Amino acid sequence: MLTKEKVKELVDHMPDTFSVDDLVERVILLQKIEAAEQEIENGEGIDWEDIKQEMNQWLK
């Protein structure tokens, strides 16, 4: 879950002027990264070797 501190840090790293759309896109990206990190911590991620094997099958 996002925290105020992480969102504040995100805003601090943005240019002095930006659109609301840019801010919303970055907040959504930050939330997705947080969710993915949580999945990895919970052991719910996909093994890199499994992904490479699956991609090799797609590219045949």
Score class of each variant (00 low, 15 high):
4 K>H: 12
1 M>C: 10
21 D>S: 10
10 L>C: 03
39 E>M: 08
1 M>N: 12
16 D>S: 05
29 L>N: 14
28 I>Q: 06
32 K>P: 00
14 M>E: 02
35 A>W: 02
6 K>F: 02
20 V>C: 08
14 M>D: 02
18 F>N: 06
50 D>Y: 04
34 E>I: 03
21 D>W: 05
1 M>Q: 11
14 M>T: 01
20 V>D: 08
43 G>T: 04
30 L>Y: 01
32 K>G: 03
49 E>V: 11
40 I>T: 06
16 D>I: 00
58 W>C: 07
3 T>E: 07
42 N>G: 04
24 V>P: 01
7 V>F: 03
40 I>R: 09
14 M>N: 04
47 D>G: 01
37 E>L: 13
48 W>N: 13
29 L>V: 11
2 L>N: 08
56 N>S: 15
57 Q>P: 01
58 W>V: 09
51 I>P: 04
57 Q>H: 13
30 L>E: 03
6 K>D: 06
3 T>H: 00
16 D>Y: 03
36 A>T: 08
49 E>W: 07
4 K>R: 14
27 V>H: 02
32 K>A: 09
58 W>T: 07
33 I>S: 05
42 N>P: 01
17 T>F: 11
8 K>N: 14
12 D>G: 05
39 E>Y: 05
33 I>G: 02
48 W>Q: 15
48 W>H: 13
38 Q>I: 07
33 I>H: 05
45 G>R: 06
47 D>H: 08
51 I>L: 14
32 K>M: 07
58 W>G: 03
15 P>V: 02
46 I>Y: 00
3 T>G: 06
42 N>D: 15
16 D>N: 05
24 V>E: 05
17 T>I: 09
9 E>W: 00
6 K>R: 15
60 K>H: 08
13 H>M: 05
47 D>T: 04
26 R>K: 11
4 K>M: 13
46 I>D: 00
27 V>E: 00
21 D>T: 10
25 E>A: 12
29 L>Q: 15
46 I>T: 13
50 D>K: 11
50 D>R: 07
2 L>S: 07
59 L>E: 15
60 K>N: 11
53 Q>A: 15
3 T>C: 03
22 D>A: 06
8 K>D: 14
30 L>P: 00
9 E>M: 09
33 I>K: 07
18 F>H: 03
57 Q>M: 13
39 E>H: 06
57 Q>F: 10
3 T>M: 01
34 E>L: 02
4 K>T: 14
46 I>G: 00
10 L>W: 00
33 I>E: 08
7 V>D: 01
60 K>A: 12
17 T>E: 14
16 D>H: 04
48 W>P: 06
5 E>R: 12
18 F>C: 02
20 V>A: 14
51 I>V: 15
11 V>M: 06
45 G>M: 08
5 E>H: 09
13 H>N: 14
26 R>V: 00
29 L>I: 09
59 L>V: 14
8 K>C: 09
48 W>D: 14
56 N>I: 14
25 E>P: 00
36 A>P: 01
50 D>T: 11
6 K>H: 07
